[in-house]
């Protein structure tokens, strides 16, 4: 099976953000970057699928600046065979432009499965996977928390609000991955050494018209500081009073 995984460079989840001086981006000083969380689950699922037998190849793609090389190297160190950077001058927030660049590169790649994260950490759009599928004319299943592929078809399960779907689809297909599929492995020392010699190709990204721009980034308003109202069951009457009179939810 041939599997492509589209991955993105994103800040580590522990990050406390500051806005950069331009006002249109985060201050990257001191911020650790990694593979965006859901994308790392997708990489892990791809590797496990190949390791289960039948052979094949996993290739990772990223649209981004040179800084994304490190992100692709991380995937190589996890066991991915090769990587492609579709290079841009600056991070791109326009989902359609990213999808166009990925589709142009994935077209004719002969992949049975093209995996995405359900949503990227920074843009939080949850759009690039479905758009890429549409541009490639492939079937797509979003936000999958259980997935089996083989014999030219796939079965998946996904959660909706208050419901769950079981789904069948033919391969080749695009699938975007939710949590629950697989926890990403840590690269071994051997993996890290091997990754240095694996192919990482760089090409210009074919973004086309970029029609979404960042006007401003801001931190959301702080919550009022927390307040401890008491200890143990003795504090319950006071809590109930506050829920009735102040929060007005009771």
């Amino acid at each position: 099976m041939k599997i492509a995984v589209c991955i993105k460079r994103a800040p580590d989840s522990e990050t406390r953000f500051k806005i950069g001086s331009s006002g249109t981006g985060i201050d990257e000083a001191g911020v650790k970057f990694d593979i965006s969380d859901f994308d790392s689950y997708a990489v892990e699922f791809a590797l496990q699928t190949i390791e289960k037998g039948g052979g094949g190849e996993v290739v990772v793609y990223s649209v981004g600046t040179d800084a994304s090389q490190e992100t692709l190297r991380k995937a190589l160190s996890m066991g991915v065979e090769r990587a492609v950077l579709l290079k841009t001058d600056a991070p791109v927030f326009d989902s359609m432009a990213v999808a166009r660049a990925l589709a142009a590169e994935l077209q004719g790649g002969g992949y049975d499965l093209i995996l995405f994260g359900k949503v990227a950490a920074d843009t939080a759009a949850g759009a690039v996977g479905a758009m890429t599928a549409e541009l490639l004319g492939l079937p797509v299943v979003n936000s999958v928390s259980k997935l089996e592929v083989g014999g030219g078809k796939g079965t998946a399960r996904r959660d909706l609000e208050g419901a769950a779907e079981s789904i069948e689809f033919p391969l080749p297909a695009v699938v975007s991955i939710d949590e629950g599929i697989a926890r990403p492995r840590y690269p071994s020392l051997k993996g890290i050494m091997a990754a240095k010699k694996k192919p990482l190709e760089t090409k210009p990204a074919q973004l086309g018209d970029v029609r979404l721009s960042i006007v401003k980034m801001e931190l959301p308003a702080d919550r009022p500081p927390g307040r401890i109202i008491g200890e143990g069951a003795a504090a319950v009457p006071e809590l109930v009073r506050l829920l009735q009179t102040e929060a007005k939810v009771l």
Binding site: S95, A127, M131, E134, N142, L160, L212
Partner: peptide, 24 residues
Amino acid sequence: VASQTGRDIAPRVAAKLGAAFASD
């Protein structure tokens, strides 16, 4: 609306129309 099912539909509509897209 960017519900689970809304997220299935809207990006594809945008891609089919070649439209600009703003999510969530």
